[in-house]
C-alpha cells in the first residue's frame, strides 16, 4: 500500500516536471510568491473544516446517546421511536439533507412564526450532526449490547432503575468498546464536511473550487486538496490508534 502511494505520487510529480504542458505545478509552487499565496489560500479553509467537524461530532455523540437509549428499553413504543429515527435518518443522503436544512428549514421556521436564519456554518453542522447521529446511535447500541445481560440483571436486583443501570453499570463498561468506532466515525464526518462547500461554507473544498475557477488548474489544486484531507485524516487516525492503545491498556474487564 505504502509502495503504491509513493510510486503513484512520484509518477504524478515526474509527469508534472516533464514539461509536456499538461501539468502546471507552478500554481501551487511554494517557491513562487503566487504559488505560496495560493497554498495559503487553500490551507486557510482548514480551520472551518476542523471546526465544523468537531462541533458536529460533539452534537452527534450526545444526540446518538439520546437516540440509542430508548432503543434498549423494554417498552416497545420507545424502541419503535428509536428504530424509526435511525432508519429514516440513515436513509437520507447527506447532500439532499443539506439542501433541505439550508434552504428548507428556515421556511419551516417562518411558517411557525419564527425567524431563524440558518447560515452555511450552522446549516452544515446541523446536517452533519443529525445525519451522523443515526450511525452514532447504532454504535452505542452495539456497545451496550456487548455488555453481558447479567450486568443489567445484577443491577436490577440491587434495586437500580433503568437510568441508574445505564449510568453506573452499563455505559462505564460500554464506553471502552464504543470510543474507537466513535473516533472512526469522526473521520467520516471530516470527509463529509466537504459537502458544506455547496452551500457556500468557506472550508477546504470550497477554497479549492474557488481557486480552480480563477486559476484553471483543477488537477494540481484538487490533488493538493486531497493531500490536505489525507494529512488531516492521518493525524486523526494516529489519535484514534493512540486512544485504542490507551483504552486497551486500561482494560480491567
Amino acid at each position: 500500500m505504502k509502495k503504491l502511494v509513493v510510486s503513484l505520487s512520484l509518477l504524478l510529480l515526474l509527469a508534472g516536471c516533464s514539461g509536456s504542458g499538461n501539468w502546471g505545478w507552478y500554481v501551487i509552487d511554494p517557491r513562487t510568491s503566487g504559488g505560496w499565496t495560493n497554498i495559503k489560500f487553500l490551507i486557510s479553509g482548514m480551520g472551518s473544516t476542523i471546526l465544523i467537524s468537531v462541533i458536529a461530532a460533539s452534537i452527534s455523540i450526545i444526540l446518538g446517546l439520546i437516540v440509542a437509549l430508548p432503543g434498549q428499553s423494554a417498552n416497545r413504543w420507545l424502541r419503535l421511536v428509536n428504530r424509526i429515527y435511525v432508519e429514516f435518518i440513515r436513509s437520507i443522503p447527506l447532500l439532499p439533507m443539506l439542501f433541505w436544512v439550508f434552504y428548507g428549514l428556515p421556511i419551516v421556521f417562518k411558517s411557525m412564526g419564527m425567524n431563524v436564519p440558518i447560515d452555511p456554518f450552522w446549516g452544515a453542522i446541523i446536517t452533519l450532526a443529525i445525519s451522523d447521529s443515526a450511525f452514532t446511535a447504532e454504535i452505542y447500541r452495539s456497545g451496550i449490547q456487548s455488555i453481558a445481560r447479567g450486568q443489567s440483571e445484577a443491577a436490577q436486583t440491587v434495586g437500580l432503575n433503568y437510568i441508574q443501570t445505564m449510568r453506573y453499570v452499563i455505559l462505564p463498561q460500554a464506553i471502552r468498546r464504543i470510543l474507537p468506532p466513535l473516533a472512526n466515525q469522526f473521520i467520516y464526518i471530516v470527509k463529509m464536511s466537504a459537502f458544506a462547500s455547496v452551500i457556500g461554507m468557506q472550508e477546504l473544498t470550497r477554497r479549492a473550487n474557488e481557486l480552480v475557477v480563477t486559476e484553471y488548474r483543477p488537477l494540481e489544486i484538487y490533488t493538493l486538496l486531497i493531500v490536505e484531507y489525507l494529512v488531516l485524516v492521518l493525524i486523526i487516525s494516529a489519535g484514534v490508534r493512540w486512544l485504542e492503545r490507551k483504552m486497551g491498556s486500561d482494560e480491567r474487564v
Binding site: A148, G150, Q151, E153, A154, A155, V158, G159, L160, N161, Q164, Y168, V169, P172, Q173, R252, V253
Partner: peptide, 20 residues
C-alpha cells in the same frame, strides 16, 4: 455478575446509595 469496573466496596455500596 459483579460489576467489573467497580471495586469490591463500590459493588456493595452502589445499590444502597443509588436505590436506597
Amino acid at each position: 455478575n459483579l460489576f467489573p469496573h467497580l471495586s469490591v466496596l463500590d459493588n456493595l455500596t452502589l445499590g444502597p446509595m443509588k436505590a436506597r
